[in-house]
Amino acid sequence: MPSSISSFDKKRAAYDQYLVSFTKGRSDGRFGISLVVALGTMVSCWNALLATGAVPFSAPSLSQAEDNRTRVVEFMRSPESEIAITGTSLTYRLPTSAFNSSTKNVALAGGSSSSSATIGATVRPSILVIELNILDREPDTDLEELSRLIRNPPFGIPALATALSPTRAAIAAVYHLDEIFDERLQAERKSLPLLLDALPAEITQGADLDHAVEAWENRPSRSEVEEKSARAIVSAAEQVETNGGNAFYVLLPLDPRLAATEYASRGVEAAKAIDPEFQERLLSVQWAYDQIRWDPDGAHLDQRSAIVVARQISDAIDQRMRADISGPVGHQENQ
């Protein structure tokens, strides 16, 4: 009996020592190698699917931040277009189907116009349109970095893999999100002439507009952020022009009461102070105010007005390109 106890104690002591020292046996090494190989195979297969375009473009999102991330990924993955539209939620609603040339919209709802412009410039469009209405939002450096990683191989596919997880892709495939997106785009195109043939909505000015005007009048100055945004926007414009393209600034129309606030002019004043070519890049648009209506907040265009504004911007771009203006142009008609 004592000898058996002694043998047991020795085995237990050896095992305890193994646990303490974390000594690796041959089986441990084989398991670790197998685990690494399995993970590597899964990642390789996923990246291969992404590279072939077999993964759905559309992905579900649960927040505005996720929606903007998905929007950037879709923008970077979609076919090249002549025009890239950038900005904030004011520009987000502009339908690309209303433009005369192939157009992509990477405006970020609730986001930074400068980050949107930076992302738009990465795809080297022939024409980059940059909204200047709101420049007091901090840049989203994570989204900017994501766009650069997607654009520049060999890091593009892994960056895309983190943005479009297998779970999101599976949900998109099961619920046919790509098909739903395409159907909505087709319906949007078919509805354009019907909406334009309809009369503009009734003009209403309620409590929501009063609150919006008060908020804009009392919004604190963020001159440092506005200056930083303006510099980033100028950099994006210069990047496109260096590659042989054209960059245009645009001030979207606002309800007259909002347009009269000091906050409404901060963005354009910041850009004007930074960019010596501001007047040349500013797109001249004579807004059809009798056809334009806004949501109750007085800032965001309603569906019909978004079409009207998109077409006016498109026509103004065509006019500029036909004129082949080389010197300063007339100032855009402000709000």
Rank of each mutant, 00 (worst) to 15 (best):
R257N: 04
T261E: 05
A271F: 05
G206K: 04
L185A: 15
N246R: 09
V213C: 04
L185I: 14
T261A: 06
D208S: 08
Y249N: 02
E262A: 13
S265Y: 01
E217H: 07
K228Q: 14
I180E: 14
H176P: 01
K190Q: 11
A236D: 05
V225N: 05
A212R: 08
A187E: 05
A207Y: 04
D208H: 06
A173R: 15
A273N: 11
N243F: 08
D275R: 07
Q239I: 09
A247G: 09
S223C: 07
D210A: 12
F248S: 02
E227R: 12
R222F: 04
P220A: 11
A259E: 02
F181P: 11
E217G: 08
Q239V: 10
V234Y: 01
D182G: 11
Q239M: 10
A198E: 06
T261I: 05
D275V: 09
A212Y: 01
H176Q: 13
N218Y: 01
A198W: 02
E227Y: 01
Q205G: 11
E241W: 06
T204N: 14
Y263A: 09
I203E: 08
E241I: 08
Q239W: 00
A259Y: 00
R231L: 11
E241V: 06
K228H: 08
L192A: 07
N218P: 00
V213D: 02
A273W: 03
T204A: 14
S191V: 06
R266Y: 00
T242N: 09
R266C: 07
S235D: 14
L254F: 04
E188A: 11
I233A: 02
A260D: 13
D178R: 12
F248L: 05
E188V: 12
V174A: 15
N246Q: 12
L185M: 15
N218G: 06
V240H: 01
Y263Q: 12
A259N: 01
E224Y: 08
L177R: 15
R222A: 12
E202Y: 04
D275K: 04
